[in-house]
């Protein structure tokens, strides 16, 4: 028990003596509960911590069955590889931009939905915009690849051509300048609806008396949104951002299904880089792949701790 907790306990208990029994004694007292917890504990150890022993391979060269110690050599190679740094920067840029755009879009759509008076319409819109979330990224990518294809089967190009807006097809997904905007749009299309769930829940909790008071004061609809709705969402927005910020390095599937070698410069992220080094190399060095993964985990854990601190400051409690 920390000193702060001790002090608090003293205030609550007054003169009554604190339980100063040793940890072992306290555990013995609750042995029934600990015994029940034991299977879970063993399960966690085996499923979550046993595989972590593989981290040691970051310090080995591991090609086929030839495994030997190389110390920090894999990390030296990693830090001197421009491809890796490109992937690292791309990961941060893509993840953070995606997070901000998706959150912004979800807030906006939530407010619009909240303003809808027709309940049937409101529920219909909600259902329709939730649907893309339940499609796998592979399906989404297949749809948009066909949709944006530069060949004669591509709907967008053929439509633009038939309207006389372009002469030649635009290769959207192979164009460095267009790949990221399209990536963000596809992600917004897929995830905005689902992202509104938490904001709509917050909006439903706003005291209606605030709106009534605003009506009495003669506030317009826009003013009510500006001075009541948005401020009410502020805390939730920050919480959503903080919770998701901790996961920014875990980006694989949305990129993997849409990227190609011509846009690696703007699309390659750490996870896809690890994937290529591990699964697309004829005889991969698993030691190197593990080193990249370990670095990513360390940065991810640091971000998580920072977010935890930020959460404590904003919400009064951490995320862990």
């Amino acid at each position: 028990m920390s000193r702060k907790q001790d002090k608090l306990a003293q205030q609550v208990l007054g003169d009554r003596k604190l339980n100063k029994k040793s940890l072992g004694a306290r555990m013995w007292n609750c042995r029934g509960y600990y015994l029940m917890f034991l299977p879970v504990f063993i399960f966690v150890l085996i499923i979550y911590y046993w595989p972590m022993l593989g981290i040691r391979y970051a310090f080995f060269s591991y090609k086929l069955r030839d495994i030997h110690w190389v110390g920090f050599e894999n990390f030296k190679t990693l830090f001197s590889t421009s491809e890796f740094w490109r992937a690292f920067v791309n990961t941060l840029q893509l993840s953070i931009t995606k997070l901000l755009l998706n959150t912004f879009a979800a807030v906006l759509v939530s407010v619009f939905i909240n303003e809808m008076a027709n309940l049937l319409m409101k529920k219909t819109v909600q259902t329709v915009i939730y649907l893309p979330h339940f499609m796998s990224y592979a399906v989404v990518a297949a749809i948009f690849t066909l949709f944006l294809s530069p060949s004669s089967t591509g709907f967008v190009n053929e439509t633009l051509k038939s309207w006389g807006l372009i002469d030649r097809s635009i290769d959207f997904l192979h164009n460095k300048g267009m790949w990221r905007p399209i990536f963000y749009l596809i992600n917004m299309w897929k995830e905005t609806g689902w992202g509104t769930v938490i904001f709509l829940a917050t909006l439903s909790g706003i005291n209606p008396e605030l709106y009534e008071a605003a009506d009495i004061d003669g506030a317009t609809r826009l003013q009510k949104v500006r001075y009541i709705t948005f401020p009410a969402l502020g805390n939730t927005i920050i919480v959503v951002l903080i919770l998701n910020l901790a996961k920014v390095l875990n980006m694989f599937e949305p990129v993997f299904v849409l990227y190609n070698s011509r846009v690696y410069e703007v699309s390659d992220v750490i996870s896809t880089y690890i994937y290529r080094k591990t699964f697309l190399t004829a005889i991969p060095d698993y030691g190197y792949s593990t080193a990249v993964g370990l670095f990513k985990s360390v940065v991810g854990a640091t971000l998580m701790l920072l977010c935890n601190e930020a959460s404590k400051k904003v919400r009064g409690r951490g995320i862990m």
Binding site: R31, G32, Y33, L35, M36, L38, P39, I42, F43, I46
Partner: peptide, 22 residues
């Protein structure tokens, strides 16, 4: 009685888990 029940449940869960691992 509660302790006995909890011990039996825990033992069976551990046994199941270890059987799965094995």
């Amino acid at each position: 009685k509660k302790k006995l029940v909890s011990a039996v449940i825990a033992a069976s869960m551990v046994a199941g888990l270890l059987a799965g691992c094995g």
